[in-house]
Amino acid sequence: MSRSATAGTPRSGGRPWTFYVLLAVFILYVIGLYAPMISIYILSFQDVRGGLVFPMKGLSLHWFVDLFTQVRTGDVKGSFDRSIRLAVLVTVLTVVISFLAGMAFRRRYFGDTAVFYLMIGSLVVPGLVLGLGIGLTFNFLGMRPSWYTSALGAQLSCTLPFGVLIMFAVMSRFNTAWEEASRDLGASPLQTVWLVILPILLPGLVAVALFGFTLSYDEFARTLQTAGTLNTLPLEIWSMTLNVTSPALYALGTVTTIVSFVTIGLALGSIVMIQRRRAQRIKNEA
């Protein structure tokens, strides 16, 4: 705890006993949150003798090599590839569509409440039910489900409501006078979007992108019935949990977590960079 986390009560000097109780709750929560994940990352670096539990047996990259070379662990490389591509596709569509919908929801329009509830419905409907519905629909229409059609739509049905809800929070901090000022100075609507609205909302849009990417990359329930014959990575992991009992499973966990962390890092990093760059100009001047 930092020194600045001082008195619990503004009046007395010492911390109340509740502080220590809640501190303990918080620390236990964080341990519970991270300990299991960290233990599988550690166990994934065992050598060929390794098992699913501690103690650690040796230290090597054996299971990572195994993961990408052994046939018995399935098509990890292919599904990994598909998952990334799908996630990028979902991210781009989520950012664009959420941005437009966010713009629409700033003012009231006829039927906006209906659209809003439709969105909430799409968010809370059980994923497998939706996947089943999409699968049956494709079936009725005589179309083959695939990751870039039915699975893409299934994932968007959950990332878009999330994205629009984030846009609500982002837009609430957007002053409409900026838009009017731009119009007043002679900008066309498109110029206003490009030169004023987008740059100001950029950090919020990065947040939407982060949600879009990670929700898609880790999506399971909605994808299960809609991915068609080729698996995405979570589906691959799912089938591995049912038949692989080696640390290769943990190695896969480590790899996908690295991808997630790189994404989080990129997203948070670019938000920080946008804000830095804005502040940087003053430093340059000085």
């Binding site: 569509l93 569509i97 659209v115 969105m119 739509g153």
Partner: peptide, 22 residues
């Protein structure tokens, strides 16, 4: 409003409303 929200509906209708009706 409808113009800006139409891409959202273009996803939600075929991938949420129709599947549920099916």
């Amino acid at each position: 409003g409808w113009l800006a929200v139409s891409p959202l509906l273009l996803v939600l209708i075929p991938f949420f409303v129709v599947p549920f009706l099916v």
